[in-house]
Amino acid sequence: MVCFLSALQAPIQAFLRPAMWIPGLNKLHSHRERWQCPDATPDVCINELVMAVSKADVTDKINTYRIKAIDTERCTCQIYSFTRAEWLDVVEIEFMPGREQGTEAEALSFSSGILPTWVPLCFLFNCIFFFFPFYDNQLNKKRLEHIRDCMSVTCNVIAEKDD
């Protein structure tokens, strides 16, 4: 359960994303993957992702998942993931037709700031302390893996890198 203050501040924190401001330093707390879903179209994949997020929310004992924005025409989705301490991590996935067949996707998961969203004015303090390094212990990589595993269509990683 996400507290009221976290729910209120999360959209501002996700929009500002101060933890991503410094290239190189953001590699400590973000992960990017390219997926291939050989047997599905982008519109099928986006629908499967919606169901996978619901399943991930039930099966993940550490994180709470909420779809923040979905664009079925462009096949994009933004997901908020709150840890138990209510740090906000953001997942952004875009599905597009594959080069040869099926669907490919760009998936990014990142920590949005050093302070959790239950802290009053966290987005302001996270902007002030944007240069403080912190490590996510590969939670963003594990989060993308968990979402991918919850999808009922075959979805393989074809490239990955820490952002």
Rank of each mutant, 00 (worst) to 15 (best):
R143H: 02
G98A: 01
V91P: 09
I46F: 05
V119C: 14
E106N: 02
F131M: 06
L108N: 15
S81V: 07
K68H: 15
I62K: 00
G24F: 04
K68C: 09
Q138H: 15
A19M: 10
A52R: 14
D136A: 01
A7K: 11
G113P: 04
V50I: 15
C75H: 07
P97K: 14
S112D: 09
L144R: 10
E94Y: 10
M151N: 06
P18S: 12
N156Q: 05
M151V: 03
Y65N: 12
A7D: 08
R99D: 09
R99I: 02
I114G: 00
D39K: 05
C37L: 15
P38L: 02
K27S: 12
R34W: 05
R17C: 14
I114S: 00
T154Q: 07
V58D: 15
I62F: 03
H146A: 04
E94V: 06
W87P: 03
V90G: 00
L25I: 13
A56P: 11
C150M: 05
N63P: 04
A159E: 08
I128N: 02
V153M: 13
M151E: 03
L88G: 12
Y80V: 06
L28S: 08
V119E: 13
W87V: 02
D162E: 11
K68V: 13
T154E: 02
L28V: 05
M151P: 07
C122R: 04
D71I: 05
V50C: 14
P11W: 15
A85P: 07
K142M: 02
K55I: 12
T64P: 10
